[in-house]
Design a binder for these strands. Structure first.
Lengths: 141, 141
DNA sequence: GTACGTCTTCAAGTGGACTTCAAGTCAAGG
DNA sequence: CCTTGACTTGAAGTCCACTTGAAGACGTAC
């Protein structure tokens, strides 16, 4: 029990493939709890690697760090019935779907641009254009 | 010819559905030329609406404002043979395709998360995880 | 003793597209 | 004359996820 392995921040960074600054940053924004100290220096155990992995995973899934923080709290305060993290995931899923739709619009737009088919191009743009309203203040030169 | 209609920046903003600050901002970053002034105030003709529309269109296609600026210059200095804007559009098309790929990964990840299929989840994540390397500096204590 | 490497802290910088603010100008209307 | 509203300017603030820098402390190897 005395041989518990503790890692320096540099070692954690090497193992997890991140910069030390990122680990300190995560701590500063409340994603990671304050670790034990030894002579003023942070010391971690192996679990920190998993924690970093979870954050990385959630980020890959499109969550912002603020959202990851909420997710982690929800996981901890696990009310198994009304799992809020599922709601968050569903919302994010819709966001990602919308993102894909947007990207598809871009593709269509770019392809129209490339082929210089201006009619098609106008069709892509029209829905987002604000109709020109009647002038209310017109200056004459 | 004396009845040429000139618009105030506020009127342009209303017609185009943007804020005046955006118009000034575009001017400040060189997307729009300096307009004529009347008593110190900007006055525009109808073409400004089209210009704003073009910027909006290019943005929808995924170009940054810096890229839009380059696009406009290339359109002006139209060397019809070596049209650089086509190259830019092609590059952007590839960028958008990559973006869609990323979003699809996110979808898969989120769906795996929702179904709590951890094996599938690990498969999604594994390629981007850094393998844990041998410790070089381990603190005991 | 001194050079090296790692750690500590806090502050500020990055990029992109704007918005917001402060302080002042201008013309029209009452 | 005074208010109102739209305009002018430049500077600074916003969001996000970090990184970079400065300045200092500590331990270890030579």
């Amino acid at each position: 029990m005395s041989g518990e392995i503790r890692l320096s921040i540099g070692e954690v960074a090497r193992r997890a493939g991140v910069r030390t600054s990122k680990i300190r940053y995560y701590e500063s924004v409340g994603l990671l709890g304050a670790p034990a100290r030894s002579g003023g220096r942070r010391t971690y155990d192996g679990e920190i690697i998993d924690a970093l992995r979870v954050v990385q995973l959630a980020q890959q899934a499109g969550f912002t760090l603020a959202e990851v923080r909420r997710l982690l709290r929800d996981f901890d305060a696990a009310t198994p019935a009304s799992s809020r993290w599922r709601a968050m995931a569903e919302r994010k899923l819709r966001e990602v779907a919308a993102l894909i739709e947007l990207a598809r619009r871009r593709q269509r737009l770019l392809e129209a641009l490339m082929s210089c088919d201006c009619g098609q191009l106008a069709d892509c743009v029209r829905p987002t254009l604000v109709p020109i309203t009647r002038a209310s203040t017109v200056t004459r030169g």
